[in-house]
Design a protein around this nucleic acid. Structure first.
Length: 108
DNA sequence: GTTGTGACTACCA
DNA sequence: ATGGTAGCCACAA
């Protein structure tokens, strides 16, 4: 059964994202040893309970944007959480550089 | 076993 | 830069 262990690793990886930084689904998947499972990362985050301590809001797509339709409730929720972590957005785009597991990866 | 789905990506016009 | 397309792959029905 792959999904259980993968879920654990995903939670662990997401939880390891430093405050004020963000990572992409692809990075998380890669870090877990499953480079092609970016979508599954999203699926797992979706399953997280609202009271979860996992900082799911620090996970964005490869374009550095929130992976929700702009203006949607979910989008606004994540945006709010990010701003609460001192992360800002300019024109729906994350400003801070992405968190890289071996340092930092330049964006923009 | 087959089909549809998706909080994704990379590539190309 | 922006939008469309084609791979991708676990999961649920």
């Amino acid at each position: 059964m792959v999904s259980n262990e993968l879920k654990q690793m995903i939670w662990q990886s997401v939880a390891a994202i430093p405050k004020g930084k963000v990572a992409t689904y692809g990075q998380i998947a890669r870090q877990c040893g499953h480079p092609r499972h970016a979508r599954y990362v999203g699926a797992v985050l979706k399953q997280l309970p609202q009271n979860s301590l996992i900082p799911w809001h620090r996970v964005v797509n490869a374009k550095g944007k929130i992976s929700f339709p702009i203006g949607s409730d979910a989008y606004h929720r994540q945006q709010t959480r990010l701003q609460g972590e001192a992360v800002t957005l300019s024109n729906d785009k994350i400003n801070l550089k992405h968190f890289g597991w071996d340092g930092f990866v330049s964006e923009s």
